[in-house]
Structure formats: structure tokens, C-alpha cells
Simulated assay, not measured.
Amino acid sequence: MTKARDIMNGGAECVGAQESVLDAARKMKDLGVGALPICGGDHKLHGMLTDRDVVVKVLGAGKDPATCPAGDLAQGEVVTMGVDDDVEEVLRTMTEHRIRRLPVIDGHDLVGMVSQADLACSLPDPKVAELLQALSTN
């Protein structure tokens, strides 16, 4: 059975909770990604920062991205997957929580990310359609 480790993109990078949103946006641009996990000084996940968060919660709210800490945008408990979790569980989790990117952990350590595209490349067509429908419904 396919595991999260088989489809994830390894080597995910975090943005520090105390780093500015501007630094996070630059890191997203440099890495070519639309989201970064927010990690604290304890190296544990505190949340996710998306490009949409930058636009809506920072720029749209009139905040200065150079002075706004990324950690201020961490909300609630972070949804994660274990590295050895089955790809069907990854699909269920992303569908249930309506998320497009899912951090993959080994213990408490971030080891990768699974994206909607990663799942689309590894699942049969009907399951991909279900995922896309769930993520696209308002």
C-alpha cells in the first residue's frame, strides 16, 4: 500500500514563528511554493502560512508584512500526517479538513509535504475527482 512518504515532497522548509510575513513571502517565492509550515523555536509545527493568508490577513487588513510575525497567523491545531500513514488516510484527511497541502511528520519532526497535486498523480481518477470537488466547494 502506498504511504505518505511515497508521494510527499521531502525537505520541507519552515518559516520561523518570529520571522516576518515579508520574509516568509520571499521564501515562498524563492522556493516556488504557496504555503510554508510555521515552526517555533522548539522546532514543532505551530501552523501553516499560505499565500492567501499573506494577501487577505496581512495586506488586506492593512498590516505591515515587514513587521507582522508569521506566527501571528498560526491558528488552531495543525493538521498533519504521519510519514507511514496510508495514502487513503491522507486523502480522507485533506478532504475532511478541506486543505490543499498537508505537512508530513516523523514523530514531531517535519519531513515533507503532500499537496493536492501529489495526490492527483498517485490516485485513481475517481478519487482525484472527489478530492478536487471537496476542495473546490465553498
Rank of each mutant, 00 (worst) to 15 (best):
V83D: 03
E77K: 04
V83Y: 04
V90A: 13
M81A: 13
A74Q: 11
Q75F: 15
T95D: 06
A70G: 14
I99R: 00
E88S: 11
G76K: 03
C68A: 13
T67Y: 11
E77F: 00
V87M: 06
E77H: 00
T93M: 05
V79Y: 02
V78G: 04
D85T: 03
K63H: 11
G82W: 06
V78C: 06
A74Y: 04
R92G: 07
D72C: 09
G76F: 01
V83G: 02
M81Q: 14
K63D: 09
V90W: 05
V90Q: 05
E89L: 07
C68T: 14
R92W: 01
T93G: 06
E77T: 00
Q75Y: 12
M94W: 01
I99N: 01
E89Q: 13
D84R: 11
V79E: 01
V78N: 03
L73V: 15
G76H: 05
E96C: 11
V79L: 06
C68D: 10
T80F: 03
G76P: 10
V83P: 00
P65I: 02
V90S: 12
E89W: 06
A66Y: 12
E96V: 06
D72R: 06
V90F: 09
T93I: 08
Q75N: 15
R92E: 05
R98D: 00
G76C: 12
A70D: 13
T67V: 13
E77S: 01
A74T: 02
V83I: 14
T95I: 08
A70V: 14
T95C: 07
E77I: 01
V83L: 04
P65K: 03
E77M: 01
D72S: 11
R98Q: 08
A70F: 09
M81C: 13
H97G: 04
